[in-house]
Design a protein around this nucleic acid. Sequence first.
RNA 1: GCCGGUGUAGCCCAAUGGGUAGAGGUGCCAGGUCGAGAACCUGGAGGAUGCGGGUUCGACUCCCGCCACCGGCACCA
Length: 831
Amino acid sequence: MNERYEPQSIEGKWQARWDEAGIFRAGKRPGAPKKYVLEMLPYPSGKMHMGHVRNYLIGDVYARYFLMRGYDVLHPMGWDAFGLPAENAAIKDGVHPALRTAENIVSFKQEMKSLGYSYDWEREVNTSKPEYYRWNQWFFIKMLERGLVYRRFSKVNWCTGCHTVIANEQVKDGVCERCSSPVVDREMPEWAFRITRYSQDLLDALDTLKEWPDRITSMQRNWIGRSDGAEADFRVQGHEAALRVFTTRIDTIYGCTYVVLAPDHKLVAQVTTPERRADVDAFVKRMAAQSKTERTGEDTEKEGIFTGAHAVNPFTGQQVPIWIANFVLSDYGTGAVMSVPAHDERDFAFARKYALPVKVVIQPATGDKLPAGDALEAAYTEYGVLVDSGEYTGMPSEAARTAMAAKLEKDGQGRATVTYRQKDWGFSRQRYWGTPIPIVYCEKCDPERHGIPVPLEQLPVKLPDIDVQEVLTGKGEPPLAKVASWVNTTCPKCGGPARREAETMDTFVDSCWYFARYLSPHYDAAPFDPKEAQRFLPVDIYVGGPEHAVMHLLYFRFWTRVMKLLDLSPVDEPVKRLITQGIVNGPDGRKMSKRWGNVVAPASIIQEYGADTARAYVMFAGPPERDFDWSDDQVEGVFRFLKRVWVLASTHHASVAGATHDGPFEGKALEIRRAAHKCLKRVGEAIERLSFNTAIAGIMEGLNALSATGTPETPAEKAAMAEAVRLLAVVLTPFAPHIADEIAEAYGSKELTVAQPWPDFDPALVVDDVIPYAVQVNGKLRAEIRVAADAGEADVRAAAEADERVQSALAGKTLRKFVFVPKRLVNFVVG
RNA sequence: GCCGGUGUAGCCCAAUGGGUAGAGGUGCCAGGUCGAGAACCUGGAGGAUGCGGGUUCGACUCCCGCCACCGGCACCA
């Protein structure tokens, strides 16, 4: 072996050998248990960043380990190739998105290969290819048939920067999550997935996802936003119409002193009295001019206006005024609320502002009573006992909620009900670089423009090739509408002239089911082969960024349900175990960014230290889920570690590599074997619980112990050292596979390390003959004694009592209790 | 405000069913090697485990109440 560790001269060689051997191809061990290891597929930008490196490494280490453990490992990779960046770049410089995407994939993939990832590249998927997106269209039509897709005319989130509609999930604080441009409301038709049909199921099943991080399930719970309450009808005085409110506190209805409608509620125009009409119209108009964020933003003042109309409380028969106000949302609940200022903070503030009455109907179950409404200083929003509430007076809130909802239902004036914050997923996008929605509009067959689905056998509806300069202008109507030769077609029903839907699908559709496409990437009878789904689903471990908690990770749970509904897949949930990796910050603790000049490029680390150091460092820096700051010193430390591994292997190479020994191992030879097997045990166990940083610490510990044993002299020592070096190569394989293969080969291995079984450690070698015991007196450490490992309680106690430090601590005291913890400590409790 | 996470040596991080606070790395100090340097080797120091209570023979670990930081949700009726 070369004396010097030169990663650059060995890494490329091994990457090529892995490729040639096809060692990472899945499906070659049909009898073995399977592991599906998956990382979120990337949008192919030109260059990888450290976040990518870490993301893929977590999966890679796991995949390599289980490959060595004998599993049939499926570890694929692909490209989330549709999307805005390529299209926006095209608007700027005229390069066709398809061309740019293809180039980016080449360089991105090259970078991935230079890190030695264990992908089965034969299953590579590219979502922008017709072979892939035709199945998006297929799903669309199947879902349309089942009412899971529909067209609606509604208020949508329009991103002023991306010039397209975006989903609720993509709006953050009123701006576009992607480009930070303001998001405004627009009334327009759009296509939507009826994800809310599954809201309850998506919520309930979170409890079965025991191996998902709490933060992610909790975010999904928040996002779905289930709220239990009741609907109640308030008759409008002088009208036929009833006004339906939603409340979670029906127990406070006797304290309702007014009701409030959203400004765009259907009844506003109808109920407003002639004398209030002008004012109300002006208010409504002003509200309509504002965006939802402006109108309901955090520091927007609550304001409202009286309509002149009155509603009748279904419980009391009392008339209360009907107001409209900016803070009531038409798309949540029923778009109307009953206001109980005594028991709701917002209603309280509003009532004070407009001098509306406050009536106390709940008293705390214990403690001081609330004063009368006029004297109340703040709303009391806790549960309590009902007062001034007719026949419900004296009931606790919880019981009253049930009783009152039942009464409403009996009288046909309402019922207990549940609302969700989650909305249906609007997925129409006014962009070019996405999946065409397979719909045509025919004036003759479909005058109301519901849309006629393209017959399945005509799929895919391919994206037309375009003149980039002409079509991708970044303004106006959807780009595809400008492509006359494409948009003008014939009606599948009557054969007459028709127009294609010019909008494309949200790219989150692509990532909803790609994990299933990997199972049979060239299958052409369905999106994927259901037989393969039986074999490989669900994904055993899925690694990606937590930023996808309520978008991708919710959408693809939804889609998994659809795939089951369509008899394609047997699973209820796509992923058993989810890992959301932490952020790799710059050395200064700030997010890596050109702006701060603190970006560490993977390529430059590979160039300087090699891929193995880059890999081992990123895994060593901390637990996968935690953020960490890049540290050049720590990188150096890991590099130093690999150099020491190399030095150990190369200095002993000539004398020990071929050594064998049949006899017993004693003394130093035994010590060497013990160090190696303890290391093997520790590393394996750490990997199983995804504690990669401690796994590497375990290898370092093993190396330190082996280095400390000095030069092997006897045949036994030499053979022990040869075994130890081979085991070192084994445990290094998941983290630093190149150096591992190089060393293994030098030590006589005929096979690639990753193709070798991960050996079981020898249990006899991982236990010590003599064990240190801590001796405590009243919980305080008084002595440490060394006792044979098989010593029982009496032996250990005798040994402890024989120690003079213990004797002096016990002198003159009465023993009250003796605690014995095997292999750990003893404690004399004295009084 | 509500939900979740994190808090251990100067720094990054371990401690697997309560059982001697330390595995590993980095930085610092000392010694060795070397051409006083760099690299390398050996050794060492360094701590009320965020704060306050409780349970226990014994608490980083379990319970209660706080604090700080990070993330999510939030006029959602």
